[in-house]
């Protein structure tokens, strides 16, 4: 009985892992920031030194899916693409904040606002490179 339970738990765990990993990246044309959010300006724009913290945060929070250089992995978008870089700071901030959970992108609203803006700054550096 105990062995059966243990087997069931292991199978359930493996299924959950596969479920979490099964979705590959697909662009979502409906994932757009509202105009008001897209118009927001980065309050750290005049503080270029804040971008260094953004790089650190990007490596921790984003690189796992988007790659160290943001060039995208199987599950997540290439952040260097013009269609990403053409979006306003406010739009990128909104996407980081809300995520797109049905496509596997989690919300990062747990990060303080300043840190989300720092990540936007680093994304701009990735685009420039």
């Amino acid at each position: 009985m105990k062995t059966a339970r243990l087997t069931a738990i292991i199978l359930l765990s493996a299924t959950l892992c596969l479920l979490a990993e099964s979705a590959g990246y697909q662009q979502d044309p409906n994932w757009k920031a509202p105009a008001e959010a897209a118009a927001k300006r980065n309050p750290l724009a005049g503080k270029p030194q804040a971008a260094a913290g953004g790089k650190k945060l990007f490596q921790r929070e984003c690189a796992q899916c988007h790659g160290d250089e943001g060039s995208g992995l199987k599950k997540a978008a290439d952040l260097q693409l013009p269609m990403v870089q053409a979006q306003s700071d406010g739009a990128l901030f909104w996407k980081i904040t809300n995520g797109n959970p049905d496509r596997g992108m989690p919300s990062f609203s747990k990060l303080p606002e300043n840190r989300r803006w720092q990540i936007v700054m680093h994304m701009r550096e990735l685009g420039a490179n």
Binding site: Q49, A50, A52, G53, G54, K55, K56, L57, P112, E113, N114, R115, Q118
Partner: peptide, 12 residues
């Protein structure tokens, strides 16, 4: 709750 510092520093 809230974090005590909101900006991430560049270094470790």
């Amino acid at each position: 709750s809230r974090p005590l510092g909101t900006l991430a520093s560049g270094g470790a």
